[in-house]
Structure formats: C-alpha cells, structure tokens
Simulated scan of single mutants.
Amino acid sequence: MDVVVDRITLRPGDSTGWHYHLVPVFAVVLSGTLTRILHDGTVEVSPPGAMFVEAAGRDRVHLGHNPGSEPVVLQIAYALPEGAPLSYEAPAPPLCGPAAEITGVAPGCMTA
C-alpha cells in the first residue's frame, strides 16, 4: 500500500472532470472555495479549511469545480495499492436542477 499526498490547484472556472476513486480520498481545502457535484446530484460547497472524504467506488462519480475568482488549492491523501492510479475518468451521471446548471451537463431527468 502506498500513501500518496498530492496538491491540486484549480484555476477559476476549472474542474477536475468526472471521475471516481477505488479507495476513499481525504482532502483539505487550503484556499479558495470548491464546489463538488456528487453522483446523485448533490452539490457540496467547501470553503477554505474544510475537510472532506470522497467515497470510493465506480458508483460514486463526482466532479470538483471552481466557480470562484481565485484558485482553489487542495491537499489530498490517498492510500493506494502499489501502482494504482489516483482516479479513473467517468462519464457524467444524469443530473437535475442546480447540479446540471453548474456543470453544464444536459439534464438527465424528466420535468413536468
């Protein structure tokens, strides 16, 4: 098992792209405010100093987005099997409401 600590910077308007992890990921927002869109359409906003855990699994795709005017800097820790990638790209899940608007993904739900 390898413990990998990484620092990621998202410039204003950037995103991580849709992805998932095979192990839980532990993150701290060092600066900026990160907006995360989770597999179920939940939107979570993490200000500087916030800590969060990203759940593991192919069914837990998510996207990190920086809608702000300053860079978002994250410190992230992964405990990975040797040689495993940090994350895997994934297609966007069907989204509704604010999550669809934030990501620009065509809504995947039916509206009345």
Rank of each mutant, 00 (worst) to 15 (best):
L34Q: 07
I102G: 03
G17T: 10
S69G: 10
Y78M: 05
A112G: 15
P94E: 11
T42H: 12
V61K: 01
A27W: 04
G41C: 06
P71A: 11
R7P: 01
L38N: 13
A79C: 07
V72M: 10
I37T: 11
E82C: 02
V4Y: 10
E89K: 11
R60I: 00
E54N: 00
T35R: 10
I76L: 14
D6S: 13
I76Y: 04
A100L: 07
T33P: 01
V28L: 15
V5H: 14
G49S: 05
A77P: 03
P98M: 12
A99D: 11
C96D: 12
P71D: 14
A92T: 10
L10C: 09
D40H: 02
S31D: 13
F52N: 07
F26L: 11
A92N: 10
D6V: 14
H21Q: 05
V4P: 09
E70C: 01
L86E: 07
D14S: 14
A100V: 06
I37L: 08
H65E: 10
R7M: 09
G57V: 02
A55M: 08
H21S: 01
A84T: 04
C109E: 11
L86V: 02
V23D: 04
M51Y: 15
G68L: 07
V61D: 03
C109M: 11
L30D: 15
V28W: 10
P67D: 14
H21R: 03
R58Q: 05
P24G: 00
S87K: 08
I102L: 15
H65C: 04
M110V: 11
G17H: 10
F52I: 05
D6C: 04
H65F: 15
A92G: 12
V25H: 00
P107K: 15
D2T: 14
S31Y: 02
H62V: 02
P94R: 06
T33H: 05
F26S: 11
C96S: 14
M51A: 15
A56C: 02
A90E: 04
G41S: 08
P81L: 12
S31M: 08
P67W: 07
A27N: 12
A50I: 06
V23C: 02
G68C: 06
L74H: 06
P12S: 08
T103P: 04
D6T: 14
H62I: 01
I102N: 07
A84R: 08
E54W: 00
Y88P: 00
A92V: 12
P93T: 08
E101F: 05
L74F: 04
L34M: 12
P47K: 01
I37W: 06
L80W: 07
I37E: 08
V53F: 03
F52T: 09
P98R: 15
V105H: 01
V61T: 10
G64P: 05
A112S: 14
P24N: 01
E82K: 14
N66H: 08
